[in-house]
Each structure stands twice: as C-alpha cells, then as structure tokens.
Nucleic acid binder design. Structure first.
Lengths: 348, 348
DNA sequence: CTGAAAGCGCTAACAC
DNA sequence: GTGTTAGCGCTTTCAG
C-alpha cells in the first residue's frame, strides 16, 4: 500500500525458493510435516524479503481473528486500568490481540461498541457493564453465534455467560460489622445504581450486618448517587444536615469516600471519632488521605488475568465455559485509621 | 462458525433479492449510484437475515484495517488511562478500532508489540516509548511502508514521526523558579531515565532556573531512579542523610513525590517549612496528600484526543503529517500548600 | 443504476 | 515431505 515496493506474499517467497505457496505457509507456522531444512530456509528468506503475514487473508480463511474484545465503563479509573493491565498481559502472552472500548457508563454506547466488536469479529468478549445497562439484547448476537461473552466485576446474569467477581455481599457485611464493633450506632451508606450487582450486593451486606447486630435499618441513612468525587462532596453536605449526626459511614467506593472525608474534615468533623469511615476498592488515594481509609482490597490486575485466562482457555483448548459459571475472587478487609476509634488497635 | 446456521453473506442477500452481490455491497455502503429504493430494501433485508459484514474480506480487499494501534509503557497509570480514554473516544467516534498493548517499560516488549501491530496491519500507530527504548529499529518497518507513527508524551525524535508533548522544560523551569521564590536555597531534584525527553527536559528546566537565579547546580542534589512509589520512599531516606538538609524538592512525577512526602513527614520533617515540595502530573493523589502538592497539570485526556485526531485526519483526509511535526500542548503550574511558605499566599 | 468477473493472500483437504 | 486446488467474502473495475 505504500509508494515504493509491493508487499511481499508467500507466493513471492515460494517463487524465490522454487517451492509451493503451501509449503511456505506451512514452513512459517510450525507445521510438523515439513523438513527442518526447508523450514529454516523459508523463515530466513521471509525475513530477508521483509515479509509480513497478512492477517486478513489468514483470518478470512480460518474464520477467526485472534482478537479479544473488551468493553468497560471507563478506561480512566484506577481499578479498570489495573484490570486492563492484567488482561493485556495474558492476552498478549497468548498471541491474541486486544480491542478495547469504553461505554462511558451508557448502555447505548455499550450496545454500539458491542456491535462494532461483532463486526470486527472478535473471538470473544470481556465485559464489565455500564451504570445503566438494563438488558442483554446487544449481547444476544454473540450468544447466537457461540462467541463467548464473559462478565467481570459488574456482571450481568445470563446462563451462557460466566461471571467473575468478588463476594461483594460478604465484604460489605464484614466492613459494616467492623464499624459496628467500633461502636457506630448510626451508619450512613452511600451507594450507586442498584441495577449493578456490585452496589446492590454491598447494600445487601450492609443491611444484613445491621440486622444481625439488632440495629434497625433506616432508609434515611442511605444515599444513592453516582459515587463520583463530586457526589462525595455533595453527600457530605447531606450528612452534615442529618440530626443526630451519624457516627459511621460506609461508602461503596473509595473515590467518593475520600472526597466525602475531605469535605467532612473541612467542616471540623473528626474522623474517626465523630464519624468512622470505610470505603471500597483500595484506591491509591485511600492510603494517602489522612486518616488512611479503611477499605476492601481486591486486585483488579488479578481479576483481569483471571478473566482473560478463562477466555483464552476456552478459545484455545475448547475448554467448556459452561463448567465454570461463576468465579469468585478473594477480597480482604483493610482496616486503617479512618475507622479505628480511641487508639483501639484491635483489628478484629 | 457456530453450530446452527451459517453466517449470512452478501450473496445470500443478493439471492434473496434477485440482485447481484455487487449491488448489495454497494447498497450496504452509501454508494451514490444505487437507487434509494434498492438501497433501503437491501439494508432492511440484511437486518432481517442477521447479516454482519465480514471485515476480514473487506480488509483484505481494501488493504486497510480501520484499526489504530497504541503502545504505551503501562496501562495502569492514572495519566496513561486518561490518555487512552481520550484516544478511545476520538477513534471510536470515527469508526476506527483500537488495538492496545503495553510495553511494561521494556524496549524488548515494545519491539515485540510493534511487530504484532505490524502483522495485524494497523493503519497507524500511536506510541509513548518505554523507559529504556534506545533506538528506532522496531518502528522502521512502519516508516518503510508509510504507516504513520505518532509519538506522544514520551517521544522519540524521528523526522517522519510527529510528536505531541508539553513543554517539559518550561514547566520545570517555572516550578523550580517558584521554589526559589519561596526561599529555597538547596533544591533536590528527583528524576528518571535521561533517555526520555520528559525527564531530561524537566531536568534541563530545573538546571536553567538555578542558573538564572545564581544558584550553583549541585549534582549531589540530583537523584535518578524509576520514579515509582517505592523509589520515593527510598529517596526520602537519601534526602534525610544529606547535610545540610535541603530545603526544596522537585520530583519529576507525583507518585514518587507523594510517597517521598509521606516518608519525610513520618520522620518529622515539616512540609513546606523545612522542605518545600513540588511534583509533576497532577495525579489524583496530589490533592489528597497533606499538604496538597504543588504540581504541573497537563491533561492526558486532551493529549490522547489530539494524538488520535491527528492520526485520523491523516488517515481519512490524507492530511499531510509532515506539516505538523511537533504539537506542544498547554500545561499549567498548580501551586498548593506543599510549597507555600509561612502562610504566604502569593501565587507567583 | 446494475451485473459479471477477477482477485486480495492465505489455508487445508486431498493427492502423491 | 511437498504440490494442487479451491475458496473464504468482499470490492471494484469494466461493461452495459
């Protein structure tokens, strides 16, 4: 396609070597039935002539792209960046390529991205759904064609799609229990769209912990927003208006928790003594904010690796996806100063 | 390729409609010389039959992929994630796809990624080079084939490759000047591999600011490391051993600056009064650390957009790349408490 | 405005 | 171990 010379094909190599194109094709791969000598010669000549394989032709012929598609809500979140790094590593090491696109938290964009992935014929799709994704329609074409779709973190329930996530319920249950043990009586919970498992499960864990400790659940203590940094600041204002002032706060992500803490501190609230705070995600900012934020750690990088490995195994070994429907990864409660009352260093 | 039905092709549509495949092909695109009526009919039928275009065949025929490749040092850095988000938006809006891979700061991996990109026939390549990239060999095949390569942020000098970056020299010059105005006499500079423009230019700006203010440059005050969080902690130990203790610190990125600050604070150093500190990048942690970190802001998102737009313009309009060799984006000094002495609120 | 036909470069079944 | 052959699905001259 450039100006000067034409692109070299296997036919050019074949002509130069007086063999057939088929032999060249075989030689370039590691086909067993081709002699060491010719194989070596072919590879050497290819190099010399500046050959590059034409993946279009090969894909067309083989009906597979060696490409895995990824759709995430946003690329620029610390957690997602970690996940992608994990995915990239595994995918790259297995000689697959990665198509990446972001839904920007909109189901509509997610659908259009899915369509693009379908047309570019990805061999498999890894998805973490958008904030407002309410149905599965845009993934149906993949299922119909037996193209594997795997959900991670923000999963969508569908029988043919494996899902990878952490036990959000239990983590939230534990962290709320921890706040209760610290003596919190009225614990505010800030969370996001309840359509998303990650938020509804955390909410469920929070409620359950209250119940088990004979605390009454008070809907007035629940704030639902988009968990952004800005929302955290606004939530702080809301909290300050509550009376009596709550003495505990569990936010469903760290970004929002941190900005909320900053706003509360600015108003003279002492953390943890006035209000003990816990977040979720172990964002880098959580150990920079003072006091350091109690949170739930789960490794995005690992989640990315696991998701990608599951996909690759299926694609390469025809490993049956149906066998593993859910993969629940480990998460851990990290207790820091933001929730530790009165120098009580007891970590449970 | 799945079990059930075969994949629909334009021939199937053609047969159903009693027209030729050529007409279907034209109808599906927006070819001018096809009647509105048949065009509409073709599109409708395609939809009904569950047709999806075969990009392999089309790419093979047209000799272009509609894919843009991106190679970055790492995906999981706040700055790169922003850049990628910007790139993705532009690329996606223009109906291109995005191949993304990471070099993990190794030139070797970068080269292997470049080879993969070459083989998958990306139409253009966007690159921010690895920590130790020392030569251009792995990009030569692109140049030879007239495949555009554009560098951003960490650029590599090559006459046929446009570069997009900020004026690192001036930003560092300004921030060092600011520290000097705050009364700093002995300013430590922590920086990275001098092979990389971003670090060598910042170093140059630091030196120049010292010169102009008749401060002697002291190589003993320069620490070169990998600018990681861990390196910041180690650098703090080094600084604490210096005598007399320096009274200013300019770190070439925020991640390292923040961890260094944390370690210094732990040793009882007062920031900014004992040591005034400045970073670079405006990382999210920079306005969480206390005192908030003075830094240089430059928007990764915008840089991504600009890089992608330049690429797309070139690809679509055949806009001549040679005309814009360098694109220098705006950056701004953000002065916060970490460098403001004695309640002196003078910004400048 | 539409059709016929060739060919993009590769792979795989089948021969030998 | 190697060659022959056909065809993957599309685009695009060239004709009409």
């Amino acid at each position: 396609m450039p100006e000067g010379e034409k692109e070299i094909t296997i036919y050019d190599i074949a002509a130069r070597l007086n063999v057939s194109a088929a032999t060249v094709s075989r030689g370039l791969k590691d086909h067993p039935r081709v002699s060491k000598a010719t194989k070596k010669l072919i590879i050497k000549t290819a190099e010399e002539m500046g050959y590059r394989s034409n993946s279009f032709a090969s894909n067309l012929r083989k009906k597979q792209s060696n490409v895995i598609g990824v759709i995430v809500p946003r690329l620029n979140s610390s957690f997602m960046a970690d996940v992608l790094a994990g995915i990239e590593k595994v995918v790259n090491n297995n000689n697959y390529n990665l198509f990446i696109s972001q839904s920007l938290e909109s189901m509509q964009k997610e659908a259009s991205n899915a369509r693009a992935m379908l047309n570019s014929r990805v061999d498999g799709l890894l998805v973490s759904v958008a904030y407002d994704t309410a149905n599965f329609d845009h993934f149906e074409p993949f299922i119909k064609r037996n193209i594997p779709v795997i959900f991670f973190d923000r999963v969508f329930d569908h029988e043919s799609c494996p899902q990878i996530y952490i036990d959000n319920y239990k983590a939230a249950y534990d962290i709320t229990g921890h706040l209760i043990k610290q003596g919190c009586k009225r614990i505010v919970h800030i969370t996001g769209n309840q359509l998303r498992n990650v938020y509804s499960e955390r909410f469920r864990g929070y409620k359950r912990a209250l119940e088990e400790n004979n605390r009454e659940f008070d809907n007035g203590l629940v704030i639902i927003n988009d968990l952004s940094s800005k929302a955290g600041t606004e939530a702080a204002a809301e909290i300050l208006k509550m009376s009596p002032l709550p003495d505990g706060l569990f936010v469903a992500n760290d970004i929002c928790a941190v900005s909320c803490m900053q706003a509360l501190k600015k108003e003279g609230i002492n953390i943890p003594n006035d209000i003990a705070v816990a977040g979720f995600n172990n964002d880098p900012t959580s150990c920079v904010i003072e006091p350091n934020l109690t949170t739930v750690n789960y490794k995005g990088y690992e989640m990315g690796e696991v998701a990608a490995k599951l996909m690759i195994n299926h694609l390469v070994d025809k490993y049956d996806l149906q066998e593993t429907h859910s993969l629940i990864l480990r998460s851990e409660l990290i207790i820091r100063e933001s929730s530790l009352r009165n120098g009580d260093g007891n970590v449970d």
